[in-house]
């Protein structure tokens, strides 16, 4: 049976793993919210500081999932598929890149390379040395059936596990939900209903 084995939620001010709040944003700190999470969990991956917000969000949530569900590192290096989606593509970084060349200076190459939504998949693949299947879709809203249908396609071939992600990170909105889907007996069934339920409750416990 396909089950949701772990999930992580990041909102504007809450970081929660498996429904349990791990950190709340401290507005008094100068650090950005994602840097607060990075520091709190003592992550050590200097490349984090070069990433755009979308990639930072994906990095943090996937690292937190690894911590709580170390079993996902036991698969072969191409047996984990990455199935991601959001609504706004890379709009936040796109705007920053556009600003870089419209504000009397030159286009910024280090910003340009993040002006694609699937870069976050690349960052997570690099971090974990995962060579599996990739897919990034731009959808009008969080759509459990997208994950359900495409994860089923992926696991019916070589993929044994799927790291799924909804990553909407814009100037005024952080709505991140990553979850791992594996074939196991027992646990939270990978159903559309359960996905909605986990998304709604994940950050409120």
């Amino acid at each position: 049976m396909s089950v949701i084995t772990a999930y992580c939620r990041l909102t504007e001010d809450v970081c929660a793993v498996n429904g349990e709040v791990k950190l709340r944003r401290n507005v008094a700190l100068e650090d950005s919210w994602f840097k607060q999470i990075y520091r709190h969990f003592d992550f050590s991956y200097p490349k984090f500081y070069k990433m755009d917000k979308l990639s930072q969000a994906g990095f943090l949530a996937s690292e937190l999932l690894r911590k709580i569900n170390p079993g996902i590192m036991g698969y072969g290096d191409d047996e984990i598929a990455l199935l991601f989606a959001n609504r706004s593509s890379s709009a936040e970084t796109d705007q920053r890149f556009k600003d870089s060349y419209t504000s009397n200076s030159a286009p910024s190459p280090s910003t340009f390379v993040y002006t694609l939504p699937n870069i976050v998949i690349g960052e997570i693949a690099i971090r974990n040395k995962w060579y599996g299947e990739n897919m990034f879709a731009v959808l009008p809203k969080f759509a459990p059936d997208f994950y359900k249908n495409y994860a089923q396609i992926l696991t019916s071939s070589d993929s044994k596990a799927v790291l799924c992600g909804w990553l909407e990170v814009t100037a005024g909105n952080t709505d991140v939900f990553l979850f791992t889907v594996e074939e196991k007996e027992g646990g939270t069934e990978f159903s559309e209903e359960n996905l909605f339920r986990l998304l709604e409750t994940a950050a409120t416990h």
């Binding site: 290096d77 191409d78 990455l82 390379v113 993040y114 870069i119 998949i121 690349g122 960052e123 693949a125 690099i126 974990n128 040395k129 995962w130 060579y131 599996g132 299947e133 990739n134 897919m135 071939s157 070589d158």
Partner: peptide, 11 residues
Amino acid sequence: GTSANDANHIS
């Protein structure tokens, strides 16, 4: 067919 990541570099 299939896809596969290089797990090497973003750009």
